[in-house]
Simulated scan of single mutants.
Amino acid sequence: MRFMLIVKATPDSEAGKMPKTELLAAMGKYNEELVNAGVLLAGEGLHPSSRGARVHFSGSKRTVIDGPFSETKELIAGFWLIQVKSLDEAIEWVKRCPNPMESDSDIEIRQVFEAEDFGAEFTPELREQEARIASKIAAPV
């Protein structure tokens, strides 16, 4: 099972405040633990929303909304993508994580959909297309 561990933004992360050396070192150690356990698929920090944009969809219309966005508690400051056996195992990994912010913070854990989750709606043709895309992503550039 794949899980996305979503680091929620804080006022400091949205202000662009960079982490201290001690936190960077602790995160590096944690990331090494994830890699050594064979569970880390990806993980990155994100720039504040002031350097981003949203695209709003309404029917066929697209509207671009430039950041920053006001609701900090709804924003993401970073993520990990891990592959583990269960939600309980994902929770245990998150509990071992250093606090990603210098204040109170949250990490949300969300399971990633797998092909089998979509049932019959995910036709053999769509599965084949998904496999082609995955092989292109995995191919070295």
Rank of each mutant, 00 (worst) to 15 (best):
G16S: 02
K136I: 07
E102S: 12
A138P: 00
G78V: 06
I82W: 11
E33Y: 08
A53N: 03
V141N: 10
S58G: 06
L75H: 09
D104E: 15
G16T: 00
A25E: 15
L75C: 08
S86W: 13
D88V: 09
R54V: 02
G78L: 04
V94S: 00
E33F: 07
R127S: 09
L126I: 06
K95Y: 08
L41W: 03
A26G: 03
G52Q: 04
E44T: 12
V141C: 06
P140K: 03
F57R: 04
T123A: 07
G45V: 04
R2I: 05
F122S: 06
A53E: 06
Q111F: 07
H56W: 11
G28H: 11
P100N: 04
V94C: 01
K17H: 13
D88T: 13
E33N: 13
A77H: 10
P19H: 06
L40S: 06
S50M: 10
A9N: 01
E22A: 13
S105W: 03
Q111G: 10
V39K: 02
A26P: 00
E74Y: 04
R110H: 12
F122W: 11
R132T: 07
E32N: 15
F79E: 01
P124I: 06
P140I: 01
S135R: 15
R54I: 02
I91G: 05
T72L: 03
A131H: 10
T63F: 08
M27V: 12
T63K: 10
E71F: 07
R62V: 00
V141R: 12
I109Q: 04
G16K: 06
A139W: 11
Y30M: 09
D66T: 07
A25Y: 07
G28D: 03
K29E: 15
W80K: 11
E44A: 13
I109K: 03
E102F: 08
M27G: 01
F122V: 07
V55H: 05
S70E: 13
K85D: 15
S60P: 00
A42N: 13
M4S: 03
T72K: 03
I91Y: 07
E74C: 02
M1V: 12
R54S: 04
R51I: 07
K61V: 12
M101Y: 10
N99D: 05
P98Y: 09
L40W: 10
L46N: 00
G16A: 08
G16R: 05
K8Q: 11
I133R: 12
A139E: 14
L5A: 08
W80Y: 15
F113P: 00
S58I: 07
S50Y: 08
E108H: 01
K61P: 02
S70T: 13
E32K: 14
E92G: 12
G67V: 02
S135F: 08
E128Y: 11
W93F: 11
N31H: 11
A9G: 00
A77Q: 07
